[in-house]
Nucleic acid binder design. Sequence first.
RNA 1: GGACCCGUAGCUCAGCUGGCUAGAGCGUUUCAUUGACAUUGAAAAGGUCAGAGGUUCAAGUCCUCUCGGGUCCACCA
Length: 741
Amino acid sequence: MDKNFDPKTTEEAIYRMWETGGFFAPKKDSNGSPFSIIMPPPNANDPLHIGHAMFITIEDILIRYHRMKGDPTLWLPGTDHAGIETQFVFEKKLAKQDKSRFNFDRDTLYKMIWDYVQENSGVAVNQMKKLGASADWSTFKFTLDPDIVQRVLDTFIKLHHDQLIYRGQKLINYCTKCGTGYSELEVEHVEETTKLYFIKYGPFVLATTRPETKFADTAVAVHPKDKRYKKYVGQEIEVTGLLGTFKLKVIADEYVDPEFGTGVVKITPYHDFNDFDVWQRHLDEIPAPQQVIDKQGRLTALAGPYAGMKIKAARELIEKHLDEKGLLAKPSETYSHNVGVCYRCKTILEPLPLTQFFIKTKPLVTGALKALDTKETTVMGAGQEKILRHWLNNIRDWNISRQIVWGIRIPVWYNVKGHEHQITVSFLDKEKTQKHGALSQWVSEFGLDHIKNNLQQIDVGTWADGGAPWVVSVDEPKADGLWIQETDTFDTWFSSGQWPVVTLQANGKSAFDMFYPTSVMETGYDILPIWVMRMMLLGIYVTGKSPFGVVYLHGLVRDEKGQKMSKSKGNVINPLDMVDKYGADAIRIALVMSSTPGQDKAVGESTIRGMRNFSNKIWNAARYVYLERQNNTSVTDKPGNEDAHFLIKLNEVHESVTQLLDSFRIGLAAETTHNEFWHWYCDVAIEQRKKGEISLAALEKGLTVFLTLLHPFMPFVTEEIWGKLTEKQNSPLITAPWKTS
RNA sequence: GGACCCGUAGCUCAGCUGGCUAGAGCGUUUCAUUGACAUUGAAAAGGUCAGAGGUUCAAGUCCUCUCGGGUCCACCA
């Protein structure tokens, strides 16, 4: 044995040995109870970051532990197509070539992204292997694998059959840059400092931050008890604005805060969530709204001379013109409030009226709450179960439509026959230039087939104008009519929300029967509502059982000062660099030592270096035992009376680590193992041995036990020692029993 | 406005159903070391466990309040 342990020259060979030995596949004939974890699928297109290293480590620890205990153990890996994220990255790449998504029809664009993802896929998988992930790669699934897609579509069809799907027009948070709408869970709120304008509005002065939307005003609202304005309620007022004079109804609604601004609010239902709600409460008083901002973030024809301008430019110009016409009642104030931004590109989201597909979520909640009540599913992670309940109790219908191509196309077909006027299409002509407009405008020139084959997007009518009838079908319906498939794709989370169910199903009935519901879902607390909650909703809906028994939520990994890692701060730790430098074992145990579920974890390079020292310590303790055995072949092979105390203590350590792992206190288990090994086995026991107070056989026994205990946390160094130590090469440590008699 | 979490050595954090003479890693000081390991060892400094009440034979651990920090949600145009 060398003086120091060198991860660089050993880890790869060890991993290969495990993999070719087939040790990652569940031993289905063992008599323990099945243990399974479905890996949270990382973005297929992205290299791993430290957060991935965290989940790989925790899950691998649990998996290795249960495998050694003799349970049939499955860790099912996979990757996610990550719809918006990936398409966003790809579009940035296109932009560098002076192209955009609008230069391609949707099928071509899809194929291009597919190829791009293929180039990069494999990177994440290889990195997971470097970290020692003992996943069963033969069960690997990608969210766009045909067998997965089929099952995701089946779920949609089932939901539709059970009347849990509807198509409806609502105000949607829409990113004009990414070109898609979101569900409310993907919206990030940030504080924005903006101007609060005071505009003369007929007899009123109103305060607004968005003068550019005033062309779409449909009413003016005041608080019902506001004495100042009581006489106007129900009246029509005459307002002179930039585009001339018009009339608006004054309504009373509790929503208006008389203390704020002037106590008068313009109602712009299509561009503000609160205004939309006010409209819904006063449908008979307020006329149907119109849209003044379009999906490109430009003003529509409704804005007259401002049509075509971007929001920000329009706002500035409108301010100027209002000022010139004396329509500003007083100078604007600086005002700070929260706005929703795209979680991906941080663009301010526009509330826009869009017709999308929704899942009725309320009927699905009951089962999830019951699973929590009965402890069918328990949540580990500082107070996170309460948070999950809060989300469940305040859930809204789930918008699953995304206006991107990188995803699973919604299996809905529109019969456009007779509705050609209401339907807007974008497609490419033979020269690959974009055509946009009503279907009726193009269909005679290009023919329906050309349009379908070169389609970018279809916009079917809204509730207001009827729109085309639609049916749910994977293939084009055979029925009479002219059929065009919806161009929207599912929210990525709709497919990953079914992940435990569909991945196991796609691995065959026996896998599903044996491993569903899974034992543990391990992921970061930051995706509790967006992912974990939805897996519960859909998993229970499809199978009747909650998809996992334990939800283990790890914290976010922060830098050694406890600050969030970010590229701009330059404090990002790349886990693969650390593997190169200190070995996979070091970063693994550094991540989990003294960590607590739900609590963020600070990790710096010095922590990892310290743990590299620990792996070397293990190596050298083993080296001591090894060398002494070589020099003392005659020493008795059995512990003697003098070892009683040592053996009792050894057993206590084993039991306490076992107990900690059984109760998912992984951080404490790592800490206990570390402390007992270093500060008892090395500092005390080996020193006792040097003085002849305990037997070599006992020390060897101790080493075996500690290698077993340490293996889930630090699989490489322990496996390497195991191989060196005896003639055990034929049965590697990964398969060793957890408890030897 | 609502909810959740945290405040324990210089720094980052463990400490489960109350029994602690309060621990670890990193850092600091002194000494040691050619035989497992300097990626080391020994010793040491450093903590009225944020504060105040309460429950208890016993509280870092349970309860209440106060102060301080963080996160999420909801939001007044």
